[in-house]
Amino acid sequence: MTSTGTPQLAGPTSDDERVRQQRRVGFSQRLGRWDVKVSPYLYISPFFILFIVVGLFPLLYTGYVSFHKWDLLTGKGDSVGFENFDWVLHSDMFWKSVRNTFSIFLLSSVPQVIIALVLAAILDANLRAKTFWRMGVLVPYVVAPVAVSLIFGQLFADQSGTINAILAKVGIDPILWHSHVLPSHIAIATMVNFRWTGYNTLIFLAAMQAIPRDLYEAALIDGAKRVRQFFSITIPMLRPTMIFIVVTSTIGGLQIFDEPRMFDQAGRGGADQQYLTVTNLIYQLGWTNRNFGRASAVAWILFLMILVISLINYLLSRRISSDETAGAKKRKKVRA
């Protein structure tokens, strides 16, 4: 107490200050541990959130719609079980679209990968103004698909097309690009190759530039020419990139929509559906026929087809890679 008789409040002691410091340090340590554990998940969470919103949920909802009679105007109807899938699998139009899709896919993807690989090898060499040429191969990719389809639609016109005019000068009869199956597939595949070859070329080029130059120098000392270096060094080192491009080309090729949709003015896939693809069939069933149930069933069948084919591509590529690795180990043992 003071001289006036009022009680004196005790101030903070050193023990109290030590306890507060220990609490702050303990809280900071716990916060740091939580930061280490939780932060990585927070950093990657935007991808998973977007994937759930724009990927997983539409996929599951499409599966739900495929088991119902669902009209564009009236909305959800009665549950029909597997009736929509049964109709799709017994539809001649569906199997025509599958045939057309795989035909266009093979005519576009196989030449596309080969041409992109050759162009990347050329661009990887010492060229003058190589930056200009490397950027130039990407120009078709930035052109709008509608513009590409309109331009190539005129080039491949049945009567007054530029291609037929050139063929007529060399004595070849005009080709009905829009009426026959194979010519229409070749024309559409040409459009696809025009747009995507440059994109794949740059991917191959980036992978080629990552190959150690010591390998080429050692091969040059051993007397290997450029062609030998390309097949013995470049292609084996590009195997992971090739797997990536083959898988992405498969997924994109089986979902082709813009080019066949814009190949003629009607956008119906031809008078006899000679170039109607699966994605165009989904569009027609959903928006023209207003039957979302059947359109969703086709979408799910297409999803399963892409999944199976991508899995087969992956397994085959992995098998080839493992066989070559085992062969390399055997050769090393023989040399030792």
Rank of each mutant, 00 (worst) to 15 (best):
Y41W: 11
D78E: 04
L117N: 14
Y283E: 08
L276G: 08
R261I: 02
D124N: 15
I211V: 09
V308L: 14
F257Q: 12
E17Y: 04
T241G: 02
F204H: 06
I188P: 05
L202G: 04
S14C: 05
S321Y: 13
S249N: 15
R33A: 08
L307R: 02
M191F: 07
N289C: 00
P236D: 13
V113F: 14
L215D: 07
Q274D: 00
S310V: 06
T74I: 01
T250K: 03
G63W: 06
G75A: 02
T131E: 10
R99H: 07
I175V: 15
L176E: 10
L31H: 03
K69S: 14
I151N: 03
T74F: 06
W70E: 05
V65M: 11
L50I: 12
A299Y: 13
R195W: 13
W287C: 01
A168S: 15
Y64E: 01
A326G: 00
Q8K: 15
T4S: 10
V36G: 00
I243L: 12
M1V: 15
R99V: 09
F230I: 06
F244I: 13
D258I: 02
V246K: 02
G81V: 00
Q154F: 12
Y41H: 04
W34R: 05
H90Q: 13
S160E: 07
P12T: 05
A299K: 05
K332M: 10
I243N: 10
R213F: 08
G63Q: 03
N200E: 01
R290N: 12
R195S: 03
G269Y: 05
F51V: 08
L205M: 10
G161D: 03
R213A: 11
T279M: 09
Q29A: 12
W95T: 03
G171Q: 01
T162I: 12
N289A: 09
Q255H: 07
F194P: 02
V139C: 04
